[in-house]
Design a protein around this nucleic acid. Structure first.
Lengths: 302, 302
DNA sequence: CTTGGTGATAACCGATGGTTATGACGACCG
DNA sequence: CGGTCGTCATAACCATCGGTTATCACCAAG
């Protein structure tokens, strides 16, 4: 017993062509299929519906009552589907010409973003750039879950083999302290003096990146003290002035938190940070992704 | 390059189920298919449209922009198709409960038709009987081209193996003559006296039936003279009074043409005619066909 | 009787749509 | 932590589908 009343829209298209031509051979060539294929499909449709759609006799092909009943619905289904497909195609076209740029905090760094944008738009005038703020939970800044096509990220990136990147900036890491902190009096501090301080840490799940900003490598195996977890610039600032802990920060980001009550100082004995624009490896050939990366390189290289 | 934007309606149904459940496994069991089948079909739809319909990530399944764009159209297509299928089904139901009775001329014979009809309707109160007058060109009275489900026919029937029948009446064949004809004076004539007369013949294409009413068998190989061809009772009457020829007629049909100027006389040396209700062999089990045949047998047998 | 044009049928073949079994991965929980 | 569960994806397999070309049966018209 066949329960399925589902049709292939193609069969309705075939039916409609025959209904309009009342001639299988002509309908078949209009549809660019062979006449036997058309005959077979129409018969299959008739079998599926349990009803004759056409009367074929010596005098030609004619619609039966059932065929006439089906006709308007077939037209409506085809029209509706055409509209639906067009709607989907419109979305597709829009998203093919839209580049989602992920970032955890604003890249800042003196108009970097507008500079890249204008250079990029010059090459891709039809494109749309959508900036997307991504939670610090995601060290890939939206690349992993597809919410971004390119993203400003800190190296090292987890799942590094899935991504490609170009380095935007290599900057020393500073330490951010409340201005009431004893070390705030110095113009420069050694990392060894910081090692026992409570640190503000990125959320778990940010993987190697959390370890990196805790400077795990430079600690020689001694675990850091975690003063609090931070998931935004504002939280970081509040945690600093609240004395919950201190943290490392890239020099390019220092302006974002050195507001009242917070100071940054250079740190000796610690490697620099690398900020990069990254994209999924499989997107490396997409014109917009390529174009944005090139614009980024040329701006950062200047 | 895939040109075809055609979809299988089933795929839209699958898509809709997933969009409503936002859960592949639950949607799959609602659809009574396995989860992999559902996954594969949805992916295939996405591939066909060149767009992601759902975002699958750790937090579950969600519609993408394209998916949301498609959703209302998918619903409309499904609804429209449901209506169309229902419309076809209505026609199918109607025609399953309708019996088309073909006949070349009215069977007459003293209320035969109403008697069968009332007996038939007693057994099948929901049925509809449609009488259908069929051209004399078709000796099967509509069975051959499907315009009748059962038909009153004269035996022998061409393509006899395609049909089954029950004899309604076996009647002597009379000769119909203009009353001005020399033989009209007799009360009975021998066929030998008629053999050289011009005969009115059924249209070519009526096959063995034409030969039968020309009594070809009784002529022993001598070809008849054809005075005219007739395709209706009226034509026959006019041809008779116009003197174009004479013809044989079943006694049950004699009243139809013995109007002013035409007489009928018994003929010696010629077999009787057999009038039957016939149907297509493959319809032998259809309840309405069976029922009408039974009603016919019981009326004719009484 | 042949010829041309109709739709139907046959034989064949790659793609489709389903199945079960299994995998990868995150969430939950001991 | 490590196991188990539940999620969706993948693999291997198989019947049916949807197309092809070649051919037939039939009829109208030379």
């Amino acid at each position: 017993m066949v329960m399925t009343t589902d049709v292939h829209v193609r069969d309705l298209r075939y039916f409609l062509a025959v209904a309009e031509e009342l001639h299988f051979t002509r309908a078949a060539e209009r549809l660019y299929v062979s006449q036997p294929a058309l005959s077979k499909q129409v018969r299959a449709l008739e079998r599926q519906l349990g009803v004759e759609l056409f009367r074929r006799d010596r005098h030609g092909v004619a619609l039966t009552g059932a065929g006439a009943a089906l006709l308007p619905y077939a037209r409506r289904v085809l029209d509706t589907w055409a509209e639906g497909a067009a709607a989907v195609e419109a979305v597709r076209a829009a998203q093919r010409s839209t580049l989602a740029v992920g970032m955890s905090t604003s890249p800042g760094r003196g108009g970097l973003l507008p500079a890249i944008r204008s250079r990029f738009m010059a090459e891709h005038p039809a494109a749309t750039v959508r900036l997307r703020q991504v939670s610090w939970e995601d060290p890939s800044a939206g690349l992993a879950d597809g919410s971004a096509d390119v993203a400003f990220v800190w190296l090292p990136l987890p799942d590094a083999d899935r991504y490609a990147w170009t380095v935007v900036a290599e900057e020393p890491r500073l330490v951010a302290l409340p201005d009431t902190h004893p070390l705030a009096a110095r113009t420069e501090v050694a990392f060894a003096d910081l090692a026992d301080e409570p640190f503000l840490a990125l959320p778990p799940g940010s993987g190697p990146l959390r370890d990196y900003w805790l400077a795990l490598e430079e600690r020689g195996g001694r675990p850091p003290r975690i003063g609090a977890e931070i998931a935004s610039t504002e939280e970081t600032y509040e945690a600093l002035v609240g004395g919950l802990g201190i943290c490392l920060v890239a020099s390019g980001n220092a302006p974002l938190i050195t507001l009242g009550g917070v100071v940054t100082r250079p740190v000796r004995g610690i490697g620099p940070s690398r900020y990069a624009l990254a994209w999924r490896r499989e997107d490396g050939q997409r014109p917009l992704v390529r174009g944005y990366a090139e614009a980024c390189r040329s701006v950062a290289g200047a």
